[in-house]
């Protein structure tokens, strides 16, 4: 049986992004009244797992790290068709950067048991680092393919996947177990169904804290995060209009200069 772990993240609802503010003193995002939703591209990872399950003998485990309300998104994945769910939740995990998150998730995967495939979205809509997948693979000491937009061959222990590049693609043959981070081009995620939600009633979510995972405190959360955010700012997207005058050549020259000054060219 193919054992799939899908890593998912609860992110602030992008539809209510305008409500997210930056605390000027602490540089921390305040998102108290913004609901958590399943990170958009994680739905593609989930869909990939479901499609594999439809074609192969497979078992899907959901793994997430976040505060207790994040169990909603784990439940949602169970309602979509996953078999079991784990939420890594502990105050000690709070404030984790990509590195500490990847480390904790890797510990979670090891504790869950044998696995063949780890799927995750290529990035989260709030952090957008694209680091968690590769770092997790590093901690697990297994290969990783990032930005997968097609799973070409998936029977046997060698898989072939197509992965995006800026101006093309890579065809990668990789031996399982492996981590794959996926793009939104991979598939079209299915929607929740009422009967799926009913079936999820019987599926349990196991919550593990720092003690269950046996993660040293200095490696978890903010303490285990080497990233230092020097500044966070809201982008001011005000438009202004400036009329450039002169001959055609002068206007072109001025325009090029202005674009260069703004760093656009």
């Amino acid at each position: 049986m193919l054992k799939i772990v899908v890593c998912v993240k609860a992110v602030p609802d992008p539809k209510e992004a305008h409500k997210i503010k930056i605390d000027p003193a602490t540089k921390i995002l305040t998102r108290s009244d913004v609901p958590f939703v399943l990170n958009l591209v994680d739905k593609n990872a989930m869909e990939a797992a479901l499609q594999l399950k439809e074609q192969l003998d497979a078992h899907i485990t959901i793994l997430s790290m976040g505060p207790p309300p994040a169990d909603n998104i784990v439940k949602e994945c169970l309602a979509l068709g996953a078999d079991q769910g784990f939420l890594l939740s502990d105050r000690a995990f709070g404030g984790a950067d990509a590195y500490a998150t990847a480390y904790t998730l890797a510990k979670g995967i090891e504790k869950i048991g044998p696995y063949d495939v780890v799927l995750c979205g290529m990035a989260s809509s709030d952090g957008s680092t694209e680091w968690v997948g590769p770092e997790m693979a590093t901690f697990l000491k297994i290969p990783v393919v990032t930005r997968v937009n097609e799973i070409v061959e998936y029977d046997g222990e060698w898989w072939k996947v197509k992965a995006g590049l800026e101006n093309g693609y890579r065809l990668v043959r990789v031996k399982l177990p492996a981590v794959f981070t996926v793009t939104r081009d991979l598939n079209t995620p299915r929607s929740l169904t009422f009967s799926g939600i009913i079936k999820a009633r019987k599926k349990e979510i196991t919550q593990w804290g720092i003690d269950e995972l046996a993660v040293p405190e200095e490696s978890a959360g903010q303490k285990g995060s080497p990233t230092i955010i020097s500044n966070l700012a809201t982008i001011d997207s005000k438009r202004t209009v400036e009329i450039i005058t002169g001959t055609r050549e002068e206007k072109a020259e001025q325009l090029v200069q202005k674009l260069a000054d703004t760093g656009l060219i």
């Binding site: 909603n72 439940k75 949602e76 929740l192 939600i197 009633r201």
Partner: peptide, 10 residues
């Protein structure tokens, strides 16, 4: 309930 919220989402 959490389940009813999920029905709404569906």
């Amino acid at each position: 309930t959490e389940e009813q919220e999920m029905f709404r989402k569906a």
